[in-house]
Nucleic acid binder design. Sequence first.
RNA 1: GCGCCUCUAGCUCAACGGCAGAGCAACGGACUCUUAAUCCGCAGGUUUCGGGUUCGAAUCCCGAGGGGCGCACCA
Length: 473
Amino acid sequence: MPGSDAVPYRFDRTAEAAELQERHSELEVGASSGEHVAVAGRVMLVRPQGRLAFATLRDSSGQIQLFALQAQTADFDAFARLSLGDWVGARGPVVRTRKGELSVQVETWELLARARRSFGDKWRGVTDVETRLRQREVDLWANDATRRVLLLRSRLVRTLRHQLEDRGFIEVETPVLHPIPGGATAKPFVTHHHALDTDLYLRVAPELYLKRLVVGGFEKVFEIGRVFRNEGLSPRHNPEFTMLELYQAYADYHDLLVLVEQLVAMLAIDVCGTTSLTYQGRPLDVAPPWRRASMAELIAEATGQPADVHTPPDVLRVRVAAAGIDPDPSWGPGKLLLELYEKTAEPALWGPVFVTDFPTEVSPLARRHRDDPELAERFEGIVAGRELVNAFSELVDPDDQRARFEAQAAAKAAGDEEAMAVDEGYLRALQYGLPPTGGLGLGIDRLVMLFADVANIREVIAFPTLRPERPPT
RNA sequence: GCGCCUCUAGCUCAACGGCAGAGCAACGGACUCUUAAUCCGCAGGUUUCGGGUUCGAAUCCCGAGGGGCGCACCA
């Protein structure tokens, strides 16, 4: 009924729980501080006891107890009947009870919102994964770990942003709706713009637009944003995820190696207090310098037999087949080498390690290696056994870029849904001149997983992708 | 997309072919220092849904739906 649940429009809070706990940590048992405060938050527990009552109040800073006496608290009976989950504001002096709990002794209070649904078992909380993920508001209320992970994520992104700004990078925003999906080999989501009557694609990467900004004269740019890939879900993959992309003019991939290891180590210290981490029970130290090893080197190490992009394709094909993969006839030596690496060397990598010098054939946006045109100046950073970062010296030659696009387009025509298309707008931009530039993409979600020591990507995303719910109850 | 597992009260879980239950939450009551307060009482169900087997199904079988894990694709 309208009015029956009438609650105020605002509440003048004067103090937060954590601040009071700190300020009155020395307050003696049974004493009153004399400080009158107004606190607000959610009722976590209620312990009515005849003519007095206790409640545990949580706000975003922490918890504090509310202590009510029938003789001194307005609407005492209603206070003692508060439900778990109700939001209240309370005013009164800060005291420490006879049993030693710092409390606000409630003189007046207001119901700010009633919890009309129960939030679950007060001791065991909510553990059902579906409830936790679909109703994250309940999960956050019930589970401290969820709150901590999302706060860690917030802090990490904030620090990353400040670090980049301190290094002279500017943050920019580029389109999410792309007429031509590009910047990564991935299957895009398609949507439709009615007024323009044209299909648009949700971006799989901001890369091409960011490099166009470098062409335009922004020498150090970054974007932290959502990208979308129309692929399966797994503990390490969500269809929308957050990526840092960064471009630095006059730098090559060697410069980026150093930047990445410095940034990751600095972030580890900021959010974990150390570079010496443990991920899922396994130690990992992200202090620089990280190991550098070429793809060819790692294959030789893992298999005992050397292989590189100049190994005869027939030999590579046999070795790929021996590794348990059926090679497609269209694969060139570069693709064969990549498959061999991914099957034999990559699974054993824990890191942190930079895998360098990928074949040009599988790196359509990367510049050719200064010592070998069949290789690209590209690296992936493997941390905790996963690809965390992908970077390269950017391809600046518009003619070579056109040839690479055309090779991609041919693969797309042959049925590769993840291959790129020719992007004439980007080629035109390159013709205006892209200076030597280093660029990188780094998965923010995976970095948060690493620092929070969680195994599933959904734990670091407030509202991960799930199959739509049918009849909501 | 494929395989395996799973779904019981608002939450956490029992019952595993023979009367659907407990704790917490909710609701009513007692209690002047509690900390998952305690105690008494009351209520709570189409056992995810639809078929089938059976004298009898939450339980066994088939199908659908949701979820989990693994594989594949990718970061």
